[in-house]
């Protein structure tokens, strides 16, 4: 479509403004994490300053932040692996082996619509009784369960697009369901599995509600540890910004590496083809 020069300039400015608005807060928290105590408290805010890594040293030493990163990593990576494995098994069972039918599907999908807050109060009581409060298990079980319905839903719609001929040939050749699942379904579903894993990872890594209620002292995830910098009286902005950067950066870098799959995942439900 043809656009006049003046319009193009206005449009370009508009887009640049929008992108600046979108990138600025992320730039700001990262840049503040490298400011010295004096520079952060300085008004007007400094855009040019001598960078220092003192905030990182402070955050790591004072609040054991590296342990928080480890806890987040353990909880989210284990949950993603379990959710993707169990979820694609269930998707294979429902979509291909005709187990359960629509009733089971509705049961699984409606569990996704639930607000987490409704489950968190009972889960707290249940995990206390199971003596699993403040352990990795409570987080991994909760995350896996919560991610499952999403994985099943997405993998069923992915499997619908995949031709059945290879599986049928494999059955004739005498393969059992497990062989078909591991040797045919999983390799064929790789693009779908990657997109689903990215979203599951983000969901677990970015979680605050589950982690803040079910854990908090022996196990402490990065988002919860970052939130602890916020106190009523005094906020150490520098170390907080460093903690924020360390929490957010792994997810952001990961997303930029796999952005094609991420976009596919975002639009998987909405746009066909």
């Amino acid at each position: 479509m043809r656009i006049s020069k003046i319009n193009l300039i206005i449009i370009t400015i508009l887009i640049i403004l929008f992108l600046t608005f979108e990138i600025f807060p992320i730039y700001w928290i990262i840049s503040n994490s490298f400011k010295s105590y004096k520079d952060i408290a300085f008004y007007p805010p400094k855009f040019i300053f001598t960078p220092s890594i003192n905030n990182y040293i402070d955050a790591i030493q004072r609040s054991n932040f590296l342990y928080a990163i480890r806890d987040s990593a353990v909880a989210s990576i284990s949950s993603v692996i379990l959710a993707v494995l169990f979820g694609s098994m269930a998707a294979y069972g429902i979509a291909r082996l005709k187990v359960g039918g629509t009733g089971l599907l509705i049961f699984i999908i409606s569990s996704r619509m639930l607000p987490i807050i409704i489950l968190i109060l009972p889960l707290y009581i249940i995990f206390t009784r199971l003596k699993l409060i403040d352990t990795y298990y409570s987080l991994i079980i909760s995350y896996t369960t919560f991610l499952l319905s999403f994985v099943i839903w997405q993998m069923i719609s992915f499997l619908k697009e995949v031709p059945k001929e290879i599986e049928e040939a494999a059955i004739i050749d005498g393969c059992n369901y497990w062989q078909i699942f591991f040797k045919i379904i999983l390799p064929i579903s790789k693009p779908g599995l990657i997109a689903v894993s990215i979203f599951s990872f983000l969901g677990a890594w970015n979680d605050y509600l589950f982690a803040s209620i079910l854990t908090g002292s022996k196990v402490l995830t990065a988002p919860v540890a970052s939130s602890l910098f916020l106190t009523d009286r005094y906020v150490p902005w520098g170390p907080m910004a460093a903690a924020c950067t360390m929490t957010m950066l792994p997810a952001l870098i990961f997303i930029l590496i796999v952005q094609k799959q991420m976009i596919k995942g975002l639009t998987m439900g909405a746009v066909k083809g």
Binding site: I23, P25, L252, I255, L256
Partner: peptide, 14 residues
């Protein structure tokens, strides 16, 4: 993609 992937808690703190 950056804001979408950003940890909600960190968004609040930022």
């Amino acid at each position: 993609l950056l804001p979408i992937a950003a940890t909600p808690v960190i968004v609040g703190l930022t």
